[in-house]
Structures are given as C-alpha cells and as structure tokens.
Design a protein around this nucleic acid. Structure first.
Lengths: 128, 128
DNA sequence: AACAATAATAGGAACGATTACTGTTATTAT
DNA sequence: ATAATAACAGTAATCGTTCCTATTATTGTT
C-alpha cells in the first residue's frame, strides 16, 4: 500500500530530525501533541514504524532499557547509553576493522551486519 | 538478603547449563515445568534475575526481538541472531581491538563496556 | 529431632510498551 | 466535485515482565 502524506507524520519526522538525543515513542508523542493535541499514541507508533521500515529513520534498542529509541540520522555511527541517567548519545569510532568479515571466518551462515553500543557514565553524571 | 538453596533454582540453572541456544524465560519455564509441574513463571523470572545479578548467568538482549535470552556461559564470547528463524548462536571473534578505549577517545564521559551482536542468516535458513 | 526465623514458592493481579481494531476523516488521482 | 482508500483518534487487547500475598521449604540453633 502506497504511503500518503500526513501532517502528523511530517510533525513526527521534523521533531525527530530536530533532536539528537534519540527520543522514545512516548517522548515524541508528548511533544507532537503540543502541535496536534488530538494525536493518538497509536498514530505515533504507526508512523515511526513506517518511517523505520522505509529506511528514513532508524530504530535503536539497548539491552537494559526495554523501550525503543528512534534516530533520524541514518548515517553510520555508534551509540552510548549512560548507565546512570539513561541518556543516549552519538559516538564516533574510527578505525573499526571489518567486523562482519572477521566474524564470518568462524561462522557457517552469512553475516549481514552487527550492532554495537557502549555504556558507561556521561559527563553530566560524572560531575556529581 | 542471603541466597538459600532451592530445587527450582537448581533445575533452572542445570537446564540452562545443558543448552547452548540461550533460551528465553518462557522456554525455560516450559521445560522446568516437566520436572516441577507446579512451578510458576514468576519463580523462573525471579531466579533468572538472581542468577544474573550474582554473575552466574548472563542476560542477553537483541534489538529486534524484545525478549531477554539467558546464557549460562559467562566466558567472553559474542552472539549471532538469525534474522529469519531468530535462533541465537555463539560466535568467536579474534583480534578485536580495544573498542572501549577507541570509543573513549572521542567521548567526554567514561566508557565501561559495550555490547555487540551480529545478525544474518544461519546455515539452516540458508538451505531453503 | 523439634523450632524459630525468614527466603522462596505458587498463583494471580498489575504494569508498561506496543499492537490491533473500528468507525471517521483526510489525501490524492480522476 | 467525486470516489477510493490511506491515515486518523480512541480504545481494547496483547505480551513480556514484575509485584503482591498467603503458604511452604530451607537453614542455623537448641
């Protein structure tokens, strides 16, 4: 089924683009609700799923927290999760070897990709 | 509070030790129920949490599936998730650089660790 | 071996994130 | 303007997991 324009989806996407902290569905809902007071949480979830499935945004999930985060930046980069405040931040990592290829050497199937995330304490939480 | 012995915990742990496919809580529940028909799912979750918190087993969670897996092998190794059948398998990876240190070079806080998992198609799913 | 203190249990209710359902509204091609 | 249908709001349902409570099992002490 083809994707039609909708004001709600546009508001969701433009909010997500404006943020670099990878908010969750309920945070997005709370903010978009200011512009569209009658928007429903289901609409937020449905649109996030559509946007993710069509490759416009990316789903992020981290082991500890069981809520999915969303990132409008689909360029290759990694993530850090603060184990104290839960904040999610971008993290650059240079000189990473070809992990998938290395993993494939000891593996019978096909490696298509991998996920890495780092955890620790962010600067703000260190200063207390 | 100190940890007392319990038959249920022992059954849960010995089942987990016997498996190398990192089952979820409900799979563990289904199997241990054969030996202890009156065991409750809450007991399984509580004991898995205790075992994980005391470092005897390890929690594994992967982005896509939103269910936690458990691994009685706490030695350092990585994991692969088949994107077709969902199977979780161990995966060796040699010559991995000091990722945490590399990540720390571009980061303001403290990196304490990381999680990696690979995805793709397992051998069984390739053969269809 | 009996006893008292309390960790662990079974069973079920409660929870939070997400998905599914349904009648109504908005977009888009004609 | 119209008709076809994607998207919506609102709400119910689902699912993994946690919490609660009265009962049972383990363990150190007589």
């Amino acid at each position: 089924m083809m994707m039609r324009y909708s004001r709600q989806r546009e508001a969701i996407l433009s909010f997500l683009v404006s943020r670099k902290d990878h908010p969750t569905a309920d945070v997005i809902y709370a903010h978009v609700k200011r512009e569209y007071p009658s928007i429903s949480l289901g609409t937020v979830y449905r649109n996030l799923a559509q946007l993710a499935d069509s490759g416009i945004i990316r789903r992020l999930s981290f082991g500890d927290a069981d809520t999915v985060h969303f990132d409008a930046d689909t360029s290759p980069h990694h993530h850090f999760v603060c184990s104290d405040c839960g904040r999610v931040m971008d993290l650059q990592l240079e000189g990473l070897p070809l992990l998938d290829e290395a993993a494939g050497r000891h593996f019978d199937g096909i490696i298509q990709g991998h996920t890495i995330y780092f955890h620790g304490l962010c600067r703000e939480c260190l200063q207390k």
